[in-house]
Design a protein around this nucleic acid. Structure first.
Length: 590
RNA sequence: GCCGAUGUAGCUCAACUGGCAGAGCAGUCCCUUCGUAAGGGAAAGGUUGUCGGUUCAAUUCCGACCAUCGGCUCCA
């Protein structure tokens, strides 16, 4: 990390102390949690702080007063008993002190040095003292009072544990200069314009309705993008030798009991019964049991393996309230799913081929992504030895493919196996998991899957569950933001629009439209009684790649005046020529 | 589920402390037929998210619920 980064981080961290001091002054009874520096700012967690957004300016003003006093930050190291005395009325601090002295590892954000057991580091600034390893600025005069801003209030569980109390987290943005703060606010404002929910409404791609919360309704234009993505996905995996299956999206509850979903996933499932029947079904939250039933339908030989069943499967998951968000988090979605059955010695090559497929599918979009290893969760199923083996296997592959350039998400695996996850970023820099490659030794055992090996003995296959886009919904949301609605030609709902200048040109416009449609180009014709300027404006706002103006000249020459999105006026072009250009661009997919 | 916020016409937003809900854009109709990012006019459009309460009177105040947004936790 550069020293510049350190400087702003130190300022941010110091601001969190100043905020805590200000809050403590205004609300003396609050209990302090922790307050680290984060990307672009800082936060502090408080218990017993009942405030709303309207109170933020007051706290901000109090902070500026503290800053103006040029208060110094002073570090000292004290014993456990001294620390306990100082923080006697701060239960959360006492908890930290206690753990610290027991030599337990604390998270980075706590910023107390775990190895310094028995010696507690504290920082005093004015009347405010906090448990902290630092470093801090020397004095508040290093802070530009106009370069920070309290941004929002949120609830946050103490130590990130939903079983612990929920504290009130106050977030602030902070930079070295006022200009940097202004630039950042401007950047957020710009990023918000890329929000897929706004663009989705503007481009008439999809909508949401109260009658089906968290379940998008794709309009004709959105459905085109959705279907093109699915087509692209099928084409991309052609060379990888997948077969397609198509299974029901509701299955008898008994199979979910057998799979372990009943025990591990019931809270997130929808259950359904016919009015005249007692039989209970569950809408599938995952596709795997279907693939397994297909696999088990007939005996399999080692010669059949690896067997790759792909399914663009519709799945339904009940989300806790407050979890939904546009296309990024929905309750019903389609996964570009596949289940691979294989012998153990095929694991490595199969995982590597899925990784190749991830590259192949992400690359045309120019998306940046990062891989993570997710390890055994607390509520895991099965034999711990198999887990260790599976995790070792995945680690080895990740090292080989990505070197050290992959992350670790501890205890984040599926209940049946460890996984490799891939994350993509949205326009605000939030990351979303899309691809996941899950190695599973459990389901084949649960369902008694078998194949006959080359010695005629029955053996249990290993399974990979994998999805590359994650869900067409989420992936489409990411793409909308990535392109700010200006999809590449092959994905564009409307690829070309014909704009007749006057009424006399409408008939010719219709001829052009017919020719384009005959060539499978998604084109429309604007017959509105409007000026050409207005029609162009509307087409530009719809992010349509090709605008084809037709007037007297074009009718005469049997041509179109082409205006290309992002490239401007391209002049007159014969229709055949245009069709060739478009077809080639669509085939290139970029 | 939890913390905070929001919900007025298809969209973006008004309506001072409770007193008959108002614009722009879009849509409809009429005029205009236009050469590269908004031509002019008219009429229409609402059970103010839902249900309940307070009040002579509720978009406005109170409560519950629903949906949405920003976070936490969880997740593709």
């Amino acid at each position: 990390m550069s020293s510049e980064n350190n400087k702003i981080e130190t300022i941010r961290h110091s601001l969190s102390h100043i905020m805590a001091a200000a809050v403590k002054k205004l609300y003396p009874d609050v209990k302090l949690g922790i307050g680290p520096a984060i990307e672009n700012g800082f936060y502090y967690d408080f218990d017993g702080l009942k405030i709303s957004d309207d109170d933020l300016p007051r706290i901000e003003e109090e902070m500026r007063q503290i800053i103006r006093q040029n208060i110094a930050f002073a570090k000292s190291e004290i014993s456990q008993s001294e620390a306990e005395k100082i923080f006697a009325d701060q239960p959360y601090k006492l908890e930290l002190i206690n753990e610290l002295c027991e030599g337990l590892t604390l998270t980075d954000s706590v910023r107390v040095r775990p190895s310094q057991a028995k010696v507690i580091s504290i920082y005093k600034s004015g009347n405010f003292t906090d448990l902290c390893i630092g470093p801090h600025i020397k004095s508040t005069e290093e802070i530009s009072p106009g370069a920070f801003k309290l941004s929002k209030i949120a609830g946050a569980y103490w130590r990130g544990d939903e079983k612990r109390p929920m504290l009130t987290r106050v977030y602030g943005l902070a930079f070295e200069t006022e200009k940097e703060l202004a630039d950042h606010l401007k950047m957020i404002e710009e990023a918000e314009k890329r929000d897929h929910r706004k663009i989705g409404a503007k481009l008439d791609l999809f909508s949401f309705h109260e009658q089906a919360p968290g379940m998008p309704f794709f309009h004709p234009r959105g459905a085109i993008v959705y279907h093109e993505l699915e087509k692209f996905w099928r084409q991309a995996q052609e060379e990888f030798d997948y077969q397609y299956v198509h299974c029901p999206s509701m299955l008898d509850v008994s199979i979910w009991k057998q799979s372990g979903h009943w025990d591990h996933y019931k809270e997130d499932m929808f259950f359904i019964k016919a009015a005249k029947d007692e039989k209970e079904f569950a809408l599938r939250p995952m596709d795997c049991p279907g693939a397994i039933l297909v696999y088990n339908n007939s005996p399999k030989s080692y010669r059949d393996l690896p067997l790759r069943y792909a399914e663009p499967g519709l799945i339904t998951r009940k989300e806790k309230s407050g979890q939904l968000g546009g296309l990024f988090r929905v309750q019903q979605f389609k996964q570009d799913d596949a289940h691979i059955f294989m012998a153990e010695d095929q694991i490595e090559s199969e995982i590597k081929s899925v990784i190749k497929l991830v590259d192949k599918i992400y690359k045309p979009f120019g998306l940046e992504y990062k891989a993570f290893l997710s390890t055994r969760p607390d509520d895991y199923m099965g034999d711990i030895k198999l887990w260790d083996k599976a995790e070792k296997e995945l680690t080895k592959i990740l090292k080989e493919v990505y070197g050290d350039n992959y992350g670790l998400k501890e205890k984040d695996g599926a209940f049946y196996g460890p996984k490799i996850d891939y994350q993509l970023k949205d326009c605000l820099g939030r990351t979303w998991q899309c691809a996941t490659i899950q190695l599973d030794f459990q389901m084949p055992l649960k369902f008694d899957c078998q194949f006959i090996d080359n010695e005629g003995k029955p053996r249990t296959p290993v399974m990979i569950h994998r999805t590359i886009m994650g869900s067409f919904e989420r992936f489409m949301g990411i793409l909308i933001e990535h392109y700010a609605g200006a999809f590449p030609l092959w994905l564009s709902p409307v690829q070309a629009i014909i704009l007749p200048i006057g009424q006399d040109h409408q008939k010719y416009g219709q001829e052009v439209l017919d020719m384009l449609k005959k060539n499978n180009i998604r084109a429309t014709l604007n017959l509105d009684n409007e000026t050409i300027g207005k029609k162009i404006r509307e087409a530009e706002m719809q992010k349509i790649p090709y605008l084809l103006v037709v007037g007297d000249k074009e009718v005469q020459a049997k041509s179109v005046a082409v205006r290309e999105r992002g490239a401007g006026d391209k002049g007159a072009m014969a229709i055949d020529e245009l069709i060739d250009i478009i077809k080639k661009e669509v085939a290139d997919k970029n």
